[in-house]
Write a protein that binds this DNA or RNA. Structure first.
Lengths: 200, 200
DNA sequence: CGAGTAACTGAACAATGTCCAATTTAGCAA
DNA sequence: TTGCTAAATTGGACATTGTTCAGTTACTCG
């Protein structure tokens, strides 16, 4: 077959992203296949290369999509949230990862090569950081002498470490039962070191 | 060719592990290839399946090897270490990961399937935890009401999160310059919450 | 010396990412 | 309407991958 007009370029892009994300969620990055994505979208391999240039580029795009979903998820949880927003944040971080294990893991499993670095959509990734930044700032009355962006990055890394262990199986091996609670405890301790008072 | 006696079963095992680890260190898990390992060892693919049963099993073994190297590295650093052992521990954790990026990453990139769970050599993995456990205990005079094993796991997860971000490129994206320092700061804050006093 | 058996090979299979010549058609110009 | 061009899509080619397994080979024991 040759040229078709089933979809505009943009529709096709969206279609491939949608089907790609579904496949990624189903099988995980290790068993992800460009050919399969194309098949599900009703096209063939070549089309993906037409639209995205390479599988790596598609993966980068899919991960950006996951980031957006993740940020939305956090905001939704925070919106319906009782007073303890730090707890909500940590627990929502874990909840998303748990509910979208494969897609979430793919974010960290897929190492982007140097030449694709520029192709990465920074905004979708920064959105998450921004949310945490906002919440942490409002949790610590007097920021004081803190390098806040750095502190926030570090707190995210802290939670990420727990989450990564939890879903990666390391914690299973070490018989940890409630990783989210541990993460929250650490975050509280770090915040407390800078003037934060947890709700009683 | 048929049966050879260039190496005993055990020598062959070691040889494949050695070459496998070298290849893993060179190329990373994504480009790791069983055929290439075999070629480097002077054998062919089938032999690997003879000795290890599957590539997954070989990978599990290689990761165990990395864990052992890692634990040894930590002990060596601690042995030559000035008073501030917590700093040494955190920095050595990072140093090993930085110096063996590919091998280190493979530990977390290679997800072991359920049926291989029993094939995992627990001891090599537990060794690392044990070291941290020992150091943390001696850093906190009165353990008090702490669930120490859990606390230790959590601290490791904290450092792991920073290290994972640093090597995975997330921190690069977020313009973090000194991830190890951030990790150390967090660890100190958490320890301080339980009676630890950092050296001045 | 001969047979048995363990070890090792290499071909076969299905699947992958990547590239690209060939094909088909949409949309525009005449 | 007809013809043309350029874009879109296909699908086959290629090199690789993990995995299996029927053969082949050479060591070992009787």
């Amino acid at each position: 077959m040759g040229r078709r007009s089933d979809h505009t370029r943009d529709e096709l892009r969206r279609l491939i992203i949608a089907e790609g994300h579904r496949l990624l969620a189903e099988t995980g990055l290790a068993r992800f296949s460009g050919r399969e994505v194309a098949k599900r979208a009703g096209y063939t391999v070549g089309t993906i290369y037409n639209v995205f240039g390479s599988l790596d580029r598609l993966l980068v795009t899919l991960n950006s999509h996951t980031f957006r979903l993740w940020a939305e998820f956090l905001e939704r949880r925070l919106a319906v949230s009782p007073p303890d927003r730090i707890r909500t944040l940590v627990e929502a971080y874990f909840a998303f990862a748990r509910d979208h294990t494969h897609a979430w893991s793919a974010i960290y499993e897929h190492r982007v090569s140097a030449e694709l670095f520029d192709a990465v959509d920074h905004d979708s990734r920064t959105a998450l950081t921004a949310i945490v930044d906002r919440e942490v700032r409002s949790a610590i009355p007097s920021g004081g002498d803190l390098d806040m962006p750095r502190f926030v990055r570090s707190l995210i890394a802290t939670v990420h470490g727990h989450c990564s262990y939890a879903l990666g199986g390391t914690f299973t091996l070490l018989e940890e039962i409630d990783p989210a609670a541990s993460a929250l405890a650490r975050v509280r301790e770090c915040l407390a070191a800078h003037g934060y008072r947890p709700p009683d």
